[in-house]
């Protein structure tokens, strides 16, 4: 999934970006409110992690602007302000979650994943498609009771397809949600990963789950 981190304190920003990337997310980053707003408006981020005390444009102003422009991104406020008034104000302005610094990174990751599930209306942490079970907490995949070993990128692709199960997703959509702003777009990288994923899933002997729709994209589901 694609995430934007807007945080001016470099050590926090760097650690959060690194941790999210290692968790398989595509992450963009911004050190002030102005560039954060620019990133948020130019890319389709599933979740935006937003500090409140930002140079140039404050976090609350970024939040207000994004909600005014109907941004579909879920927003998690990550701030040192801990008073109930601050929390209420942030949530009232349209934030979806609020976490106070200092924080445990595992909690931040869990909250980000929860927001992603909310965005794709997947309440259960286990996603079942046919005989395949995806555990989004432990990031494991089983098919027909057998574990399927996937790389971080392959898992991220499968999770995105699973969250959009039975819907056709285009290569552009996949690119938007799997690669950050700095990645150089290559024409067939999505196809290559789809091929590798399809191969690993089909090794267990079950029916094909990833289907190609010519000219449209890919669909994950039991039936073509």
């Amino acid at each position: 999934m694609r995430i934007l981190v807007i945080e001016d304190f470099e050590p926090i920003r760097a650690a959060v970006v690194q941790g999210l990337r290692e968790a398989g997310h595509a992450v963009d980053e911004a050190a002030d409110g102005e560039s954060g707003l620019w990133h948020a408006q130019s890319g389709e981020h599933d979740v935006i992690i937003l500090d409140l005390m930002l140079p140039k444009v404050s976090g609350l102003e970024v939040l207000r602007t994004l909600r005014r422009r109907k941004s579909p991104s879920y927003i998690l406020i990550l701030t040192a302000r801990d008073t109930p008034e601050d929390r209420v104000r942030g949530l009232d302005l349209g934030a979806d979650d609020y976490l106070v610094k200092p924080f445990v990174f595992a909690e931040l990751l869990a909250r980000v994943n929860a927001l992603i599930r909310r965005k794709y209306e997947a309440r259960d942490t286990l996603i079942r498609i046919g005989d395949m079970v995806i555990d989004t907490v432990h990031r494991t995949v089983q098919r027909g009771g057998k574990t399927v070993d996937l790389s971080g990128r392959e898992y991220a692709l499968l999770q995105y397809l699973a969250l959009n199960a039975n819907r056709v997703v285009s290569r552009a959509d996949i690119w938007q949600h799997m690669y950050d702003f700095n990645a150089s777009p290559e024409s067939n990288v999505v196809d290559v990963y789809i091929g590798m994923l399809r191969k690993k899933l089909d090794q267990t002997g079950g029916l094909p789950l990833i289907h190609t729709r010519r000219g449209q994209g890919y669909m994950l589901g039991e039936r073509e």
């Binding site: 304190f9 470099e10 050590p11 926090i12 760097a14 650690a15 959060v16 690194q18 941790g19 290692e22 040192a80 302000r81 801990d82 106070v100 610094k101 200092p102 924080f103 445990v104 990174f105 595992a106 931040l108």
Partner: peptide, 22 residues
Amino acid sequence: VAHELRNPLAGLQATLEVNRSR
């Protein structure tokens, strides 16, 4: 004081946790 300590503490904690995760 709490606010001034929160950010660096959060930076320390996040840096240590992420680097310790694997």
